[in-house]
Every structure is written in structure tokens, then in C-alpha cells.
């Protein structure tokens, strides 16, 4: 079992996980923003590495990626930043395959692991293509998190969930990241995952308000909140403002 999964299983016995997402390098103070999220009660952090062509992201995270790239953000700068801060909660890096493929899978996995990351999410790499990255991640002990979508048929849910490490990412709806209404198909997706694995299951994609988070947390182990918080950082560089925006999500889960 990966270190990430051990930590998240232990957490499950205590509370529903709050996992905010932020794009690495999107603001000059992005590391302060990550600490603000920890102060607001984040149980783990999902940190984006920007890619020029983010096909699973909506306008808010696209804009964050553009800002991060314009500021010269690379896998190395994000790794260095994370390593320096010694964040007290698990860090999971989310990016697209080309970013790690270009550096070399083994180099990228080592770099992220040495920086302190415990897992990765590559949303453009489905089960059939994830083998090489999983192999590269196994040595350094990085967990490879896979997604289940509302469109994933039951037999496939078993295979993907079984291969996911750390946690299973349940997509709440057929959509890219961004604002949405309600909790979508999340309950059905989580139920299908729970039927085949006891790996912690977190729901993301379109969890836009504390109310969504509270409703979703009724039947899963944690929620991932991206665009709703990233938008705050796009609006204001003040970490206190982000912490203020994140606290209600924490409260909604407790």
C-alpha cells in the first residue's frame, strides 16, 4: 500500500477529507496560498502543474494555467516550492501526461517524490495507458490516482478502481472542471466504486459550494474543491481571503 493511501485511510477514521486544488505558480504567493488552505483545514492538497493544453479543465483553471506559465512555472519550480515549505498534509500533484513524459517518466517521478509529493493525477491517461507511469512511480513510492467517470461501465469501474492508488477520484459529472449546480451523478459513481473497493473515494469536478460539499460528503470519504477556490486566487492575491473562502468548505464537512 502506498504511503498516500495509508495516510488517507487513517484520516478516514477521523473525518471527511477536504482536498482543495491550487495551480502551482499561478500567483507569486502560491505557496502562501497553499499554507492558507492548510490553515483553513485542508487534509491534503492537490497541486496543479500547468500545461498549455489542459483538456479536462474549464475556464477558471485554464486561466490559472496561463498565469502560471506566463510566470515561468515548470515542474522543477513547483517541486522546489513544495519541498521548501514542508507542508504538513499530503500533496498530490495533478498535471497532464506531456509534462512528465517530456522530462522522462522516471526523472519526473523521482523529482516529485523527492519534493515530498505522495501521489499524482494525470487526467489524460486512462487505465490502458497508465502502466509506464505507474512503473516509474513505484520505485519512489508515488501513488497513481485514477478517475472514474459517470460514463464508466460497471465492469470497468472494478478494473480502474482496483488499479487506483491512494484514493479513487470519482468525477461528479460529465464535465470538465468548473462551476456546476448540485452534486451531479456523484452518488451513483461513488456507489459503483464502493461496491468494488474500500480504497478511500473522493468526489471532485463541479463541487462549487460548501452546500455541495456537505451533500456529497454524506456518501463519500472526501471532496476535492478546485475552481471555486482557484477563482478566489485569480481575484485576489491575499492568502487571508483564500483562507476565508476555504473555511466554510471545512465546516461543511465536519
Amino acid at each position: 500500500m502506498t504511503e498516500l493511501e495509508r495516510r488517507l485511510r487513517a484520516l478516514r477514521d477521523q473525518r471527511r477529507a477536504f482536498v482543495p486544488y491550487l495551480m502551482g505558480g499561478m500567483s507569486p504567493r502560491w505557496l502562501d496560498h497553499l499554507e492558507a488552505l492548510v490553515a483553513a483545514g485542508a487534509d491534503a492538497l492537490e497541486v496543479g502543474l500547468p500545461f498549455s493544453d489542459p483538456m479536462m479543465d474549464g475556464p477558471v483553471i485554464q486561466e490559472a494555467a496561463l498565469r502560471a506559465l506566463a510566470a515561468g512555472t515548470t515542474i522543477e519550480t513547483v517541486a522546489t516550492g513544495i519541498a521548501e515549505r514542508h507542508l504538513p498534509v499530503p500533496v498530490v500533484v495533478m498535471t497532464y501526461y506531456n509534462v512528465v513524459h517530456h522530462l522522462g517518466l522516471e526523472r519526473a517521478a523521482s523529482l516529485l517524490s523527492e519534493a515530498g509529493a505522495l501521489g499524482t493525477i494525470l487526467p489524460d491517461v486512462p487505465l490502458e495507458e497508465i502502466g509506464p507511469w505507474k512503473d516509474a512511480s513505484a520505485g519512489p513510492g508515488l501513488a497513481t490516482v485514477l478517475l472514474i467517470a459517470p460514463s464508466t461501465p460497471p465492469a470497468r469501474v472494478a478494473r480502474v478502481a482496483g488499479a487506483s492508488e491512494g484514493f479513487v477520484y470519482a468525477a461528479a459529472r460529465m464535465a470538465v472542471t468548473g462551476h456546476a449546480e448540485g452534486t451531479g451523478d456523484a452518488q451513483r459513481v461513488v456507489r459503483a466504486i464502493r461496491a468494488v473497493t474500500d480504497t478511500p473515494t473522493y468526489v471532485g469536478i463541479g463541487i462549487s459550494t460548501p452546500a455541495h460539499a456537505a451533500a456529497t460528503a454524506e456518501w463519500c470519504d472526501g471532496v476535492i474543491v478546485g475552481s471555486a477556490l482557484v477563482e478566489r486566487v485569480l481575484e485576489s492575491d491575499d492568502p487571508a481571503a483564500l483562507e476565508h473562502a476555504a473555511r466554510p468548505f471545512r465546516a461543511a464537512l465536519d
Binding site: M55, M56, Y97, P123, D124, V125, P126, L127, E128, E129, L146, L147, I148, A149, P150, S151, T152, P153, R156, V160, A171, M174
Partner: peptide
């Protein structure tokens, strides 16, 4: 089977699009 021509090709799409 994986949709490859030599080392090129494949199917690198989000899980949501795999069934489609």
C-alpha cells in the same frame, strides 16, 4: 490493439471519454 502505429498513437483521453 492499443491503437498504435509503431510507438505512436494510442488513446490518451480522460476516463469520461474512454467508453465513447
Amino acid at each position: 490493439e492499443s491503437g498504435r502505429f509503431g510507438e505512436f498513437g494510442g488513446r490518451f483521453v480522460p476516463e469520461a471519454l474512454v467508453p465513447a
